[in-house]
C-alpha cells in the first residue's frame, strides 16, 4: 500500500533522515517509534507530500506522488501533531472546509461529516465553536478532519500528545475501529505503550535511521534478557552497579525513576542470589516485582539510551 525507499532529507548541515525505508501493507498498522527529533515527523511529512526528500521516493499504491495536485493525495489522510483546527469556527464549519479541500460534493460531505463526528463521539457538539472544546475533544476532532475523504492510509503524527488518559483511550478506540474497517495506519509516537497496544509492526527510528523494523514479538526476540526484576531499595545511595553487573545472574542493571531494574534470564533461579548480594552490601529492599521487557527496553538495548533521555 505504501512504500518509502531510502529517504534522505537534510536541513542545512543537520541530517534529519538518512536513508529511511519502510513498507506498509494494506490494512496494516505500523508504529514509527523514536525519541523527539529522531525523524518521525519528517518521514510522515514526506509521505504526505509536505516535504520533498533530497533523495529517495514514496510510492502510494505503487504510484509515486507527483506534485501538489496529484489525485493520489486523496488516498492519504493526515492527522498533524499540531492541532489543525480553526478555533473560531464550529466543528461543523471546520469539517465542511476540510471536506471542500478534497472537492467532496455537499451531500457526500454532509454524510461523511456526520459519520466522522459520530465516530469520535462529538455528534452533539457539531455546532459549537472549537474554542469551547477541551484538549481531548480537539484531538478527536483533529482526527475526524482527516477522515472525510475516506482515505485508505491514515498518517497519525503523535495524535495523543497532551491529552488526558480518558481521551487517549477514546482515541485508541477510534483508531481500533478504523483498523477494523481495513484502514492502513501509520502511527508516530514516543510512547511505547501506545505502539505496543495498537501496532502490528513497529519501526524504530533514531537519528534519522531505521534501527529496527519488526513485529512486537520479533523485537522482543532481539532482547538478550526475557525478564526484568524491579526492586525498590530503601536507599539506592552507594549502590555499586558495576559490581552488581559482574554477578552471573545479572544480564543488565540500571536505576531508573528510583527503581533498580535488573535483567535476568530466569526469575525463579536468579532472584535469590541477587537479593542475597543486596542484603550483604547493605541495600535492603522495600518492594519487589517483575516486568516483561518492553519497547523501552528494546530501544535501550539497540541504542544504549532510553527513549525519554534521547
Amino acid at each position: 500500500m505504501l512504500e518509502a525507499n531510502a529517504l534522505r532529507k537534510s536541513y542545512g548541515k543537520v541530517v534529519a533522515l538518512d536513508g529511511v525505508s519502510l513498507r506498509v501493507g494494506e490494512g496494516e498498522t505500523v508504529g514509527l517509534l523514536g525519541p523527539n527529533g529522531a525523524g518521525k515527523t519528517t518521514t510522515v511529512s514526506i509521505i504526505a507530500g509536505l516535504l520533498r526528500p533530497d533523495s529517495g521516493e514514496v510510492l502510494i499504491a505503487g504510484s509515486p506522488l507527483r506534485g501538489d495536485t496529484d489525485p493520489i493525495k486523496r488516498k492519504i489522510g493526515l492527522v498533524p501533531q499540531d492541532m489543525a483546527l480553526y478555533d473560531e469556527l464550529s466543528a461543523l464549519d471546520n469539517l465542511s472546509l476540510f471536506a471542500a479541500l478534497y472537492q467532496i460534493d455537499r451531500a457526500t460531505a454532509k454524510r461523511a461529516i456526520a459519520e466522522a463526528l459520530d465516530l469520535v463521539g462529538l455528534a452533539n457538539r457539531g455546532r459549537d465553536k472549537v474554542e469551547t472544546f477541551s484538549g481531548g475533544m480537539k484531538r478527536r476532532l483533529n482526527l475526524a478532519g482527516a477522515l472525510l475523504h475516506d482515505p485508505q492510509i491514515l498518517l497519525l503524527d503523535e495524535p495523543t500528545v497532551g491529552v488526558d488518559p480518558q481521551s487517549r483511550n477514546a482515541i485508541f478506540d477510534n483508531l481500533e475501529t478504523l483498523k477494523q474497517r481495513g484502514k492502513t495506519l501509520i502511527y508516530t509516537t514516543h510512547y511505547m505503550e501506545e505502539a505496543e497496544r495498537l501496532c502490528d509492526r513497529i519501526v524504530i527510528i533514531d537519528h534519522g535511521k531505521v534501527i529496527a523494523d519488526d513485529t512486537l514479538a520479533g523485537l522482543h526476540r532481539m532482547l538478550p534478557v526475557t525478564n526484568v526484576l524491579a526492586i525498590e531499595l530503601e536507599t539506592p545511595d552507594g549502590l555499586r552497579l558495576e559490581q552488581l553487573r559482574t554477578l552471573p545472574e545479572v544480564q543488565s542493571a540500571e536505576i531508573r525513576e528510583g527503581v533498580l531494574r535488573i535483567g535476568v534470564h530466569n526469575l525463579a533461579i536468579n532472584t535469590p542470589g541477587i537479593l542475597k548480594w543486596l542484603a550483604e552490601h547493605g541495600h535492603p529492599y522495600q518492594h519487589l516485582g517483575s516486568e516483561r521487557p518492553n519497547l523501552e527496553t528494546v530501544f535501550l538495548t539497540l541504542t544504549g539510551r532510553s527513549l525519554r533521555d534521547s
Binding site: S45, L78, Q81, D82, M83, A84, L85, L101, G145
Partner: peptide, 15 residues
C-alpha cells in the same frame, strides 16, 4: 508553523 498548514498542504490543492 501550524498543523493547519500541513492539513491544507496535504490536500490536493495547487499553490
Amino acid at each position: 508553523k501550524s498543523g493547519l498548514w500541513q492539513r491544507l498542504r496535504a490536500a490536493p490543492l495547487s499553490r
